[in-house]
Design a protein around this nucleic acid. Structure first.
Length: 755
DNA sequence: TGTTAGAGCGCC
DNA sequence: AAAAGGCGCTCTAACA
């Protein structure tokens, strides 16, 4: 008989290498484990004081589904548990209630990483005792929390029959979600994505091997390069007061330097006392001599020549009796002392090297309220023709600092700690265990964090990828990419005949756009744009680059004005090109219209707590796979408001989410299959490991002897999208999903691998 | 001392 | 007619 098993762990919770309750660090261990198999009347639990062979989840042979909330967290603790491996090998599946809830709710922002408490009441349950949570928030370690209290939290109190707590709530949510998912035709889609979740758990477990020697070399070199650059740049900084150190990382400083502006700095200085209207001073006491009973300032008085030091000044009052008889009389007088200083804001105006364009204004202002201007790469590029001496070097410095501080290591003086990706490299293994998040985007794409391993600079930007090496002796890194995934997905979703035909014919879309734009044949465009021997190659290759930018922008729904702005193409040319596309691929237009109609039709009002509880609307569209997408309205643009329309959906978002989301979904589906293949083959006998995914690609670390086999298998499995769609969803794909394999000693020095 | 918004920028 | 999509990290500046 098939049964589900709900389980949950309470673990020691030291955050190390940016990872909360890091399971890869021996410092942490499972403190308490709770579980309940389908049909059990009470939850079971165990309590532990450290790692041990007994501290493992037991999975009975008839269990076919593991259930948990934020299940990947718990699974990673058990990932090398032989019983879990056997469970997966016999086809066992998982259900994460957090992921399922996110999907059921259409990936809405407010359902990203939903906590159990956030959703429990909608499934008829009660929020848990928050005493344990309060202890955690105070920084108490799990192992220090009273055992009975922790167990109550985990599985419910004796009074509740030990059938509540985290475990009971998870079961309640799970059962409710199954019903909801069936009602919305989402069950197959959710089950499919859960295998994708296993694939990324495997990747986090395996992590990424870092060449720390290479990292050290680069950090040293870059540090030296930075010092040289700063010395070279120094000459362009105007003379500034010593309290103001020009900061090349400050947008305010850069804007003022380039375009002129006022910088502020803090300096200790005298100030006017409001009470007296004069310069503020400390109080001091002085001993003033008395003359005729009145104290007089001794300043300017000559000392008494005959009676000094008993009588200080000529004519000074003297004591006539007592111990001090005959001595000069003094009185303590309060006088203004040392000038007081306090921290005050001072300004210094920089003349600037050139005049800014109004469109570069930012929301920020300088010390006197003038706008701060953008100093981004785009702006620097536009300034290229203005003959400003230091801009190139400044841009170079900017990218070096970005590289060093984000992807290597840099000491942050203000935070008094190191920052950068290297802080996540584990000390002995030299592995980065990154996080791949399934519930953090509105399109159902994955995200990555701690560190983000989905934005590592590619060749041409940085040498960072050289650090990513194989963990095996003589091993290779394999990267497999889908080619033009989003265009393929657009063809799948829209069923556009021409787009399908073009994909099948392997048309170069950019050349095709150039042909439409310049009114020449496709063949002629290819000849001019792609053949360096052509006499006008340079010009036409440039047109193709414009067309490329055009396609990306169109994919994101940009309008003619914006595209004209970034490419420099004439607005009318862009408009013509858009029109030509709509005629060429008419089903893309009609698909977008169908999505918009569905969104408008399903729209319901809601109040936005972030925008003063004002009313907006939310609408959805469901993809053929069952994935639900959700959009909200925003304040209407001015021209719409003039027509009495208050709030509008963003057409750009409506065009983009289905394509971006379905692309992500397809990759995740295939990752699940790939992972199943690796499970069935015991990771090629431990010789190849899945280790990362970046939206349309997969990274694999492999021993040299299985590289070919792995590359062939992985390419075949990833390309089997049409078969998967047919088998799981009964969807026919009119287009293939081709992939390209690259292999190298690291992720930088890799080459196309023909299988 | 810690939090937050904005700018900027890396990836797809 | 019209508004370039999705992420996460680092840095500064302003604020409590």
């Amino acid at each position: 008989m098939a049964r589900y098993l709900v389980f949950d762990l309470e673990t020691e919770n030291y955050k190390t290498y940016k990872r909360f309750a890091n399971p890869f660090d021996e410092i942490n261990y499972v403190v308490a484990r709770g579980w309940k198999a389908q049909g059990d009347e009470r939850c079971s639990w165990s309590y532990h004081t450290g790692r041990s062979p007994e501290n493992r989840l037991h999975i009975p042979d008839d269990v076919t589904l593991l259930v948990g909330h934020n299940l990947k967290f718990d699974l990673l603790w058990e990932w090398d548990n032989p019983e879990l491996k056997a469970f997966f090998k016999r086809g066992g599946r998982i259900w994460c209630t957090q992921y399922a809830e996110y999907l059921i709710q259409g990936a809405r922002q407010d359902y990203h990483m939903p906590s159990m408490d956030f959703i429990i009441e909608s499934y008829g349950g009660r929020k848990k005792i928050d005493e344990v949570k309060a202890l955690w928030e105070m920084g108490v370690k799990t192992s220090q929390i009273d055992k009975d209290l922790l167990i109550d939290y985990l599985v419910g109190t004796e009074a509740e029959g030990r059938n509540s707590g985290d475990i009971g709530n998870t079961e309640l949510i799970f059962l409710g979600q199954i019903k909801k998912a069936m009602g919305k035709s989402m069950l197959k889609m959710i089950h499919t994505r859960m295998d994708g979740l296993c694939a990324t758990a495997e990747m986090e477990f395996n992590g990424l091997k870092i060449d720390v020697e290479e990292a050290r070399r680069r950090i040293k070199d870059m540090g030296e390069e930075l010092i040289e650059m700063d010395a070279e740049l120094e000459q362009y900084i105007p003379e500034l007061p010593p309290e103001l150190k020009f900061n090349w990382a400050s947008n305010v400083h850069k804007s003022a330097l380039i375009f002129g502006g006022t910088l502020k700095y803090i300096k200790k200085a005298p100030y006017i006392d409001e009470k007296t209207g004069t310069v503020a001073r400390k109080q001091a006491t002085e001993q003033w001599p008395l003359f005729g009973g009145y104290p007089t300032s001794p300043e300017g008085l000559a000392p008494c020549p005959n009676h000094y030091p008993t009588i200080f000044y000529p004519g000074q009052d003297v004591y006539t009796s007592g111990k001090k008889k005959g001595q000069g009389r003094f009185k303590a007088v309060t006088v203004p002392g040392e000038v007081k200083q306090k921290n005050q804001e001072f300004h210094v105006e920089l003349p600037g090297y050139t005049v800014p364009d109004k469109k570069w204004e930012t929301k920020n202002t300088d010390a006197v309220g003038h706008p701060v201007y953008q100093t981004s790469d785009d702006v620097i590029e536009e300034l290229g023709s203005r003959d400003i001496p230091f801009l190139k070097l400044m841009a170079k410095r900017q990218s070096l600092v970005k590289d060093l501080g984000t992807y290597y290591l840099r000491y942050d003086e203000s935070k008094k700690e190191y920052v950068g990706m290297m802080t996540c490299v584990m000390k002995h293994s030299h592995i980065i265990h990154h996080s791949l998040n399934h519930t953090s985007t509105v399109t159902t794409r994955l995200s990555s964090s701690d560190p983000n391993c989905q934005n590592i600079p590619k060749e041409g930007t940085s040498e960072v990828k050289k650090m990513f090496i194989s963990r095996f002796a003589g091993g290779k890194m394999i990267e497999i990419d889908y080619t033009q995934l989003e265009i393929v997905v657009q063809a799948l979703l829209t069923g556009d005949k021409q787009l399908i035909e073009d994909l099948l014919n392997k048309v170069d879309f950019h050349c095709k756009r150039v042909a439409a734009w310049k009114n020449i044949s496709y063949e002629e465009a290819v000849a001019r744009c792609k053949n360096p021997a052509h006499q006008e190659y340079k010009l036409w290759h440039g047109y193709r680059t414009d067309a490329k930018v055009f396609s990306f922008q169109r994919a994101y729904g940009a309008g003619a004005a914006k595209i004209s702005d970034t490419t420099g193409m004439a607005v009318d040319d862009v408009k013509d090109l858009i029109e030509a596309e709509e005629l060429l691929y008419p089903d893309i237009l009609s698909f977008n219209q169908r999505v918009e109609q569905a969104v408008q039709k399903s729209a319901v009002p809601f109040r936005d707590p972030i925008r003063g509880f004002r009313t907006f609307r939310r609408g959805t569209w469901q993809a053929p796979t069952g994935t639900l997408y959700s959009w909200r309205t925003y304040d209407a643009p001015k021209w719409a408001k003039d027509k009495g329309i208050n709030d509008t959906f963003m057409p750009t978002e409506m065009k983009n989410y289905p394509v971006q989301g379905t692309g992500g979904e397809i990759v995740q589906m295939q990752l699940g299959l790939l992972w199943r293949h690796f499970v069935a083959n015991d990771n090629y006998g431990g010789r190849a490991l899945l280790c990362n995914t970046v939206h349309d690609c997969v990274w694999i670390d492999s021993q040299p002897d299985v590289v070919h086999e792995v590359a062939v298998d992985a390419k075949r499995i990833l390309e089997s999208v049409p078969e998967s769609l047919e088998r799981i969803f009964g969807i026919h794909s009119p287009v293939p999903f081709p992939c390209e394999v690259e292999v190298g000693n690291n992720l930088f020095d890799k080459q196309v691998y023909h299988v």
